[in-house]
Design a protein around this nucleic acid. Structure first.
Lengths: 153, 153
DNA sequence: TTAACAGAGTTGCATATGCAACTAATAAAT
DNA sequence: ATTTATTAGTTGCATATGCAACTCTGTTAA
């Protein structure tokens, strides 16, 4: 959704703002990583964050669910991260269909290196935005997410 | 940016809300297209919209700029759309380096079929959101975009 | 107990995307 | 006018993603 353009009916809608802003944020974050010689994508960053801060040893399906990813997509994301020694697949002993995804020491170190960069960036984005505005913003986002849940096809 | 998770410093930031909501919107839009047997991606939709409603016969670089896309990415997007007869590359007579991208009749028809579906979806997303909230929301998005522009690396 | 079913993960096929190196063509500089 | 620089677009290489079909394993039913 990348178009908050000039004319037409679409101008009164919020979604294009989300799409365009998200894209600009992504570009910026890629730049930050690039300029700090960090060979991790935004998607990999999210997985590292979840494993490090929330819950290590998640199975792939859980990680896919948490990150709103297709399980096929997650398979390949983990492939790359495993190749780069950021995470490891640990076969579950209880159920041999499952893999537990574990963050490696390399992954932890890299996450700790990235974390302040991310926090700075996310903080910078909010310059000049008041607490009241943040509250409304989050409230609107919540309503949009609720609307989506209620209109699943 | 897909994590508005439970604990940690990242909770107070807005960006994760944008990322997650954007992703959910994208999933929904894909579903809408899929269930209406429309073989067009969201990215292609945006290009069709710009060509139909804003400005036909844009050159690739302009289209890339407008859509915040890398020109290499745009090349391939146009490749697919040209293959599917949605747009055509018209070599410029004034400057043979340039291609003018023109929406085809097929593209126009498809756009007109999609437009009400998109408008309905974008409208549905805003259920229960007041005009005041919308105004704050757009204001916040604008501030974020401004912050990004002022912090280009 | 064996057959039918459900869950976890992978792979084929297709799209989208970015960076960097490249070609071709136009514009600018000496 | 010829060299140099810039611009438009493409391509190689790499990542990310979704759907559908598939394998393998575990669970449920007959």
């Amino acid at each position: 959704m990348n178009f908050n353009s000039n004319n037409s009916d679409f101008n009164k809608t919020l979604a294009p703002w989300i799409g365009r802003t998200e894209k600009l944020i992504n570009i910026h974050i890629s730049d930050v990583f690039l300029h700090n010689n960090i060979q991790v994508t935004k998607e990999q960053w999210i997985v590292l964050k979840i494993l490090y801060e929330d819950n290590d040893n998640l199975i792939q399906n859980e990680l896919a669910f948490i990150t709103n990813r297709n399980k096929a997509s997650l398979t390949r994301l983990i492939n790359v991260m495993e190749k780069n020694k950021l995470v490891a697949r640990i076969p579950s002993k209880k159920d041999s269909r499952k893999n537990l995804i574990q963050i490696t020491e390399t992954g932890k170190l890299l996450f700790l290196k990235m974390k302040p960069l991310m926090l700075n960036t996310l903080e910078m984005l909010q310059n000049g935005i008041t607490e009241d505005e943040k509250e409304v913003f989050i409230n609107v986002m919540t309503k949009i997410q609720t609307n989506l849940k209620n209109h699943t096809i």
